[in-house]
């Protein structure tokens, strides 16, 4: 009913300056809609999103560090418990998947998990930015930018290789290089998953008739769901491979 009322009460759509094909293509490639980074260079909107998410998270963390953590109690309150659960979740996750070496891994997956989840949910806010052409654009999820997804995939792979190197030097790197397709698969999986949400949302919003009520379910649920799923997929892939690469060799076990 709300959908029908919305359709009939609004004007017929004006001619849009972009076709659906162009909108979709731009959502994937960001070729035309670029944003100036402090006048230094033009970047994809995804990078601006990444900066906004990072600064917001760091500010939030700083506020917690200054005002909340010094007041932590032995018997925790709700917020303290939530923070402790969050930290313990990533620590336990790393410990479970990589029992031999998990210190650095837990920090990495904490950062990556927080970034992917918050970055994905960030697109729900619909923060507007002005492109270099002067048109407004809603900032997308940072990882819906292929450059961001590649960066995250490659960094995760580097983290795994570093774990292998620390544990077994060149042999560890050799073991890691066997899965040479992993950075590519991780990057494009992340990119594809993030992009699916963006494309569905773009599609829904492009047609006025679909932009009532439906976005509440499609946009929010899709975003929340794939935020959780992608966070989980990346951290579990990273943790498991890191765990495999940091397993002690037979010689070390015998010596121990």
């Amino acid at each position: 009913m709300a959908l029908l009322v919305g359709v009939f009460l609004t004007k017929t759509p004006d001619l849009k300056h972009e076709s659906i094909k162009e909108v979709m293509r731009d959502a994937v490639l960001h070729e035309s809609n670029r944003i100036s980074l402090f006048g230094i260079m033009e970047v994809n909107p995804g990078f601006i999103s990444a900066l906004v998410v990072s600064v917001s998270l760091l500010l939030f963390a700083a506020i917690i560090r200054i005002f909340v953590i010094p007041r932590f109690k032995i018997m925790p309150g709700r917020f303290q418990m939530a923070l402790e659960k969050l930290v313990m979740f990533f620590t336990d996750f790393a410990k479970e998947n990589s029992p031999h070496r998990y210190g650095f891994l837990s920090v990495y997956i904490f950062g990556a998990g927080t970034y992917i989840f918050c970055g994905t949910v960030f697109e729900l806010l619909g923060i507007q930015a002005i492109t270099t052409h002067g048109s407004p654009i809603a900032l997308p999820a940072p990882l819906s930018d292929i450059n961001g997804a590649i960066a995250m995939g490659c960094l995760s792979y580097l983290v795994m290789l570093s774990g292998g190197f620390v544990e077994s030097r060149l042999k560890g790197i050799g073991k890691g290089l066997k899965d040479f397709s992993m950075p590519l698969s991780m990057s494009f999986r992340l990119f594809g998953a993030m992009l699916s949400g963006v494309l569905v949302t773009e599609l829904v919003y492009y047609y006025k008739a679909l932009s009532f009520v439906l976005p509440v379910f499609i946009g929010v649920l899709f975003t929340l769901l794939h935020a959780l799923v992608q966070t989980y997929v990346l951290i579990i892939l990273t943790s498991m491979t890191y765990g495999e690469l940091t397993e002690p060799t037979n010689k070390k076990i015998k010596r121990a």
Binding site: L29, L51, S54, V107, A151
Partner: peptide, 27 residues
């Protein structure tokens, strides 16, 4: 696919700073 090495590096730098910051301030 509009892959830009500069932006990949910027993303890497951004994420590294974020992870370091989150580690020092929260984790």
């Amino acid at each position: 696919l509009n892959i830009d090495w500069q932006q990949i590096l910027l993303h890497l730098l951004n994420f590294s700073i974020l992870t370091l910051g989150l580690y020092l301030l929260l984790f």
